[in-house]
């Protein structure tokens, strides 16, 4: 609403006739439609196709005719114990990783914001992991976490601790996944938290220190309430990304050992590309898309409110 009102006000008051306004509309259509067409062709159309396939028993390898099976694929997925297991794994992973990242990221941002010198350099250094490709991150941690010659075990050994089979034991594999994801994405939370922290007006702190408010009191009543909205944006964003995560699992553990690190994304891949049950995989994918749509709607609504506020 406010945007549109701004636009109307911005056009020159003496309306220069119909033709100008019409050409503006033409220009808008000409400039926007190519972009929308590409998105329709590469994002919307594929999803609609997946929606259609999700009601059939189509298989990409068998080919041939696809038979309509109604909601069969959906009920099969929603009642499958395997899928429930993967959902639980995904939930543990998303909650674990995002919580750790938020706590660590905010801590680092807070510590950096209290420094007066070297802030720029510190921030830049901390941001490196985030810019790396998940392939590089996954491969490299796989090397570092190797049970025999990995540097992590080597360091543990040198301080007298036992060796850990990071990626080859059920429980530790999921923990490793969470640790690696945290290593890569803590900088993301840090970056956004830091933006929030540096935007807190100085005079609030000055007023608080005149009142001799304690550090903790200042943190609780000034810092946190002002940074929280931005931090929530970062957390929601990370949660969506973590829910979609595929590449790190693929590289780091390949879902193993057993199925202990198989997230929903990874399971969809296995059903689609190793099981070749394209119909089932499409239904599975559509269900995931629904979750993502709900999450991203929350995110976008919140973002919208934040922008208007």
């Amino acid at each position: 609403m406010t945007d549109d009102a701004g636009q109307v006000a911005a056009t020159p008051p003496p309306a220069p006739g119909r033709s100008r306004r019409l050409s503006d509309r033409g220009l808008a259509v000409a400039f926007i439609s190519p972009a929308l067409l590409l998105l329709l062709a590469m994002s919307v159309f594929p999803l609609l196709w997946a929606l259609y396939l999700s009601f059939t028993d189509y298989s990409a390898t068998r080919g041939g005719r696809a038979y309509f099976v109604g909601f069969g694929n959906y009920t099969a997925i929603l009642t499958s114990a395997q899928v429930h297991q993967r959902a639980l794994t995904t939930l543990i992973y998303v909650v674990g990783a995002v919580t750790l990242q938020t706590v660590l990221g905010f801590t680092i941002a807070y510590l950096i914001s209290r420094r007066t010198r070297g802030r720029g350099l510190l921030t830049t250094l901390f941001l490196v992991p985030m810019m790396l490709s998940p392939v590089v991150v996954g491969l490299f941690w796989r090397f570092m976490l190797d049970a025999q010659f990995g540097v992590v075990n080597s360091m543990l050994g040198s301080i007298g601790l036992g060796q850990v089979e990071w990626l080859t034991r059920q429980r530790t594999a999921l923990i490793s996944l969470i640790v690696v994801d945290t290593w890569q994405w803590t900088p993301f939370i840090m970056l956004i938290a830091l933006a929030g922290l540096t935007a807190v007006p100085k005079y609030l702190y000055e007023a608080a220190s005149i009142d001799r408010a304690s550090e903790w009191f200042r943190f609780r009543t000034i810092t946190l309430p002002l940074v929280w909205p931005l931090l929530l944006i970062a957390v929601l964003f990370r949660a969506i990304e973590a829910f979609r995560l595929f590449d790190l699992v693929y590289i780091l553990t390949n879902g193993g050992p057993g199925v202990s690190t198989e997230t929903l994304s990874f399971h969809v891949y296995k059903v689609a590309f190793l099981g070749f049950n394209t119909g089932t995989a499409s239904a599975y994918g559509i269900l995931m898309v629904l979750v993502v749509i709900v999450l991203s709607q929350i995110y976008l609504r919140y973002l919208n409110r934040l922008k208007e506020g």
């Binding site: 999803l47 997946a50 595929f246 994304s265 898309v289």
Partner: peptide, 13 residues
């Protein structure tokens, strides 16, 4: 929101 779609899902169709 099209950017938030899980790539593994989009890649099937």
């Amino acid at each position: 929101s099209t950017r938030f779609m899980p790539p593994v899902v989009v890649v099937i169709p």
